[in-house]
Design a protein around this nucleic acid. Structure first.
Length: 154
DNA sequence: GCCAACGTTGGC
DNA sequence: GCCAACGTTGGC
């Protein structure tokens, strides 16, 4: 069992949309390191949903990985915003995976609060210039952040 | 294989 | 909107 943090911009795909849909395809990853992490994911892994590029970046809820990675066909679709002209059927560089909604925090754990967790140790989320959209976490990091998020007052 | 130019990400 | 940081591209 592994633990992950998945980034999305709320205007792109929000926690409330994931909650209403229940399950979605996590597609459009166009970074090799992030893609490699998608391929390392296993059914039942747990993750956070993080919202970036918004007024209040932070962790908004939890999700579960469903199944394992498969080809991201949006790379082949010239009408898709994720189209990659270098990918072809049979030579598609990119992967997608399904995720299932678990919970939405009543109050998100915002980035300044995450940075204040000294026990977090080194994490790509809080290191300088972080741009990775799929981030692996240790069990300890996951539990620390989950408890910090769950124990927040309204 | 180096590295400058360019594009993108993401916090502020 | 700004800008630092980073990944990718492409000429050599």
């Amino acid at each position: 069992m592994r633990y992950w943090l998945l980034k999305t911009e709320p205007q792109e795909y929000s926690i409330s949309l994931l909650r209403s849909e229940g399950r979605t395809r996590w597609e459009g990853i166009r970074n090799y390191q992030a893609r490699n992490y998608l391929r390392e994911m296993e059914n039942g892994d747990l993750g956070f949903l993080y919202h970036s590029s918004c007024k209040t970046p932070g962790i908004y809820g939890t999700l579960k990985i469903s199944g394992s990675a498969y080809p991201d066909n949006s790379a082949l679709d010239s009408k898709s915003k994720y189209f990659d002209k270098k990918s072809k059927n049979g030579a598609n560089n990119w992967s997608a995976i399904d995720v299932t909604f678990l919970a939405q925090y009543s109050k998100p754990l915002l980035l300044p609060d995450i940075k204040s967790l000294k026990e977090l140790g080194s994490c790509p989320l809080t290191s300088r210039g972080n741009r990775l959209s799929v981030i692996p976490l240790t069990l300890e990091q996951f539990e620390l952040m989950n408890e910090a998020a769950s124990s927040q007052k309204e």
